[in-house]
């Protein structure tokens, strides 16, 4: 069961009207390494992982939905008042033709989200290594979007989200260490 708190994890401010940034941000909404893929990956893998790390996957998977909501808010703010002409000029003409100004789960190139972006191998180490890789890829995606964006307020929110990817990666790496059961033991090789 989930409890919903009707506020964002971190305030989202967008200071310039630049719908093209929405085109880049949608990568983190419905892309392979986006927040939706992350949330669904972790919240599904947790059923077949050792008890000790189920809670971690639940916590991080839940937080990914909070990030998804932040990304959605950014995209919404950037596009809600964009006219068809502005959407076309921002490279979102094809998006507008299908969705008007609605959000949709596709990547920056318009490819719709697919479950083949995520995996559940059932092997705890294989799954956790996938999760670590996913966090590092999401971190890199945030870096490239920050490089593309010249909106300081937006970048502030993106920097926060990138920091969370670092922490999530750290926690998944610690989960691997827990499963190795070699912590607190003297190491002899």
């Amino acid at each position: 069961m989930w409890i919903y708190e009707k506020k964002l994890q971190y305030p989202v401010r967008v200071s310039t009207c630049n719908p093209m940034l929405a085109k880049f941000l949608i990568e983190q909404y419905g892309g392979a390494d986006g927040e939706l893929a992350a949330a669904l990956r972790y919240l599904n893998q947790r059923y077949s992982i050792p008890d000790k790390v189920i809670g971690l996957l639940t916590d991080i998977g839940t937080e990914e939905f909070a990030h998804l909501e932040m990304i959605a808010t950014m995209i919404y703010k950037l596009t809600k008042d964009a006219t068809p002409e502005m959407m076309k000029a921002a490279g979102l003409g094809d998006h507008y033709a299908v969705h008007d100004n609605a959000l949709f789960y596709h990547n920056a190139s318009g490819v719709p989200w697919t479950a083949s972006y995520i995996q559940a191998k059932g092997d705890p180490i294989a799954d956790l290594y996938e999760d670590i890789a996913a966090e590092e890829k999401a971190r890199a995606t945030y870096q490239w979007i920050i490089n593309l964006s010249d909106d300081p307020d937006l970048n502030d929110g993106l920097r926060y989200l990138r920091e969370r990817e670092i922490i999530h990666s750290q926690r998944f790496r610690e989960a691997v260490e827990i499963l190795k059961e070699e912590r607190d033991k003297k190491i002899f090789f």
């Binding site: 945030y142 920097r159 920091e163 969370r164 670092i166 922490i167 750290q170």
Partner: peptide
């Protein structure tokens, strides 16, 4: 975005 100073790395 983190409680821990050691993990803080703004980009």
């Amino acid at each position: 975005g983190t409680l821990w100073k050691a993990f803080y790395d703004p980009y």
